[in-house]
Amino acid sequence: MSSEPDTTETLDVKGQSCPMPVVKTKQAIDDLDAGDVLEVVATDSGSMSDIQGWAEGTAGVELLKQVEGDDVYTHYVEKTE
């Protein structure tokens, strides 16, 4: 088993669909401090591509890891600044 990044907080967006996983992730990140890592747990399969695209296009965040489980998609996003 590969280890998951240490997380500061977990955001549960299971059952929610586009655009909620991205929008809620952004709102949760805004409430964190630089260096904090947010774990986002989603069931929206589109969140794999969407969170990646959002993290690439947004300053001050870095996508550390994405884990595709059985119907659950977990994303680890670090607030870098």
Partner: peptide, 11 residues
């Protein structure tokens, strides 16, 4: 609305 709220998440 979906595009607007998502774009806002991109700042």
């Amino acid at each position: 609305l979906i595009l607007a709220s998502t774009a806002a998440a991109f700042d």
